[in-house]
Amino acid sequence: MTVTALNTPSAEAVVTEAVRRAWSEVLGEEPESADVSFFEVGGDSLAAVEMIEHLQEELGRSVRIQDVYRSPSQAGLVTALLIDEGSVPAAHHTTGRTVVRLRNAGAGRLWCFLPPQSGAVTRYASMARLLPLADAVWACETPAALSREGMRAVADGLADALIGEGATDFDEIVLAGYSLGGVFAHEVAAALAARIGHERVSALQIDPPSPGDPALSLTATFEVFVRVGWRITAREPAEFIDAAGERDFAAVAAAAAEAGTLPKNAGADEVEEAWEVYAANAAILGGWEPVRHHPDDRRAMLRSVAADESVPGATETVWAPCAPEPAWAPALDAGHCWGIRLEHFQLLEAPNDATIARWLIAAADLLAGEVGAR
């Protein structure tokens, strides 16, 4: 049995080959294409169980039957296995692709989630289950080269990547993002709208940071990297900084392995690579200010409100109208900001992710309806 660390750079190739072999063993021939359904070419429930057994033997980990039913194509099953939150550290798992198709569907509404600070798409995995089945769900990861070139390079690069992947085939494109992903959603939507028209593009922002937020400093970013990214809570982040002020990535790797968020055979290089993405994404906001790019921009925001902030009607499961942070006010139309009483890092954690999905649907429908009423 080969045990594979699924967050290595070769993860996609390894999983693709494993799915190809398992498919061939069960059905007697390789998939005709990456998009053909397992069940349309002779597969049934017993064959699905047999394929899972092959995959578990090949990958050395548990595979869920629901992944086969929800994503019965080779491409869909590979993505489902790559973004399986139960088997990899959620905050750092990347696929090595810029555009990741979480779920294919019709040509009506496309949801595309922009990367949070980790640059990974895993935080959005549950949205492929929670959003309407008639809608396609994609996500973007941040290529390191683009991050180092600044916000404009990221916005233009991701917009071009989405067009190259066929996003313009959809009637409506909803760009959404959590935290830093909300900033990217705002900027990528502007870049995309400039290319294909504002009437087809919306941006939905889930608690994005504001310029000058102390949480964007490298010190604060490293604390999030350790505590939230690697789920290391037994030790202080400062313990991983040596006397010379350098970050001890080997110590972080050892603590992450002990916490069960890093494979035992991984090491400091993997942790350092993940940190480089965090740091680049934190630095990208330096000097950036959100502005209203165009009168026809379609934007909506959901933000976490403090316990002492007066937002009547806002609870952990219900959002209520509120004012945006001052830095974001010029980028939103009146009535397009809501508050919810959830802590920032819990917004996409179950069961809160179901509430966020409901808000996303309601906000997207509102913006689409406003365009239709013009």
Rank of each mutant, 00 (worst) to 15 (best):
W23V: 05
I196V: 12
H336V: 12
A244L: 08
H336I: 01
E223R: 06
V49Y: 12
G42M: 15
A22Q: 02
A193W: 07
G181I: 11
A11H: 00
E316G: 14
H294K: 01
L262E: 08
G372Y: 10
L46G: 11
V224C: 11
A257F: 12
R358V: 10
S73P: 13
L175M: 04
N104S: 15
P312L: 06
G164F: 10
W328E: 12
S217C: 06
R292K: 07
G119M: 03
T2F: 05
E53H: 15
A5G: 08
N265L: 09
G157W: 00
I340Y: 09
L130F: 06
N352F: 15
A357G: 05
L285C: 01
P290D: 10
A47K: 11
E289P: 02
R303E: 08
G181M: 14
A176T: 07
A314K: 01
Q56V: 07
E276Y: 06
R299M: 11
A243R: 13
Y278Q: 03
L218S: 03
Q346V: 05
P31R: 10
A194G: 09
H293I: 04
S37W: 07
E30N: 14
S73F: 13
V228D: 07
S62M: 14
A266P: 10
G197F: 04
R103Y: 09
A255L: 13
C140R: 04
R374W: 07
T98G: 05
A274N: 08
G182R: 07
E30A: 04
E223P: 05
V137L: 13
T142W: 08
V68R: 11
A176K: 01
I206V: 13
E270Y: 04
Q205T: 05
R148F: 10
R303I: 02
G86R: 06
A280F: 13
P31K: 04
T2Y: 11
A323T: 06
H186A: 08
V14H: 10
F222A: 04
G164C: 03
E12W: 04
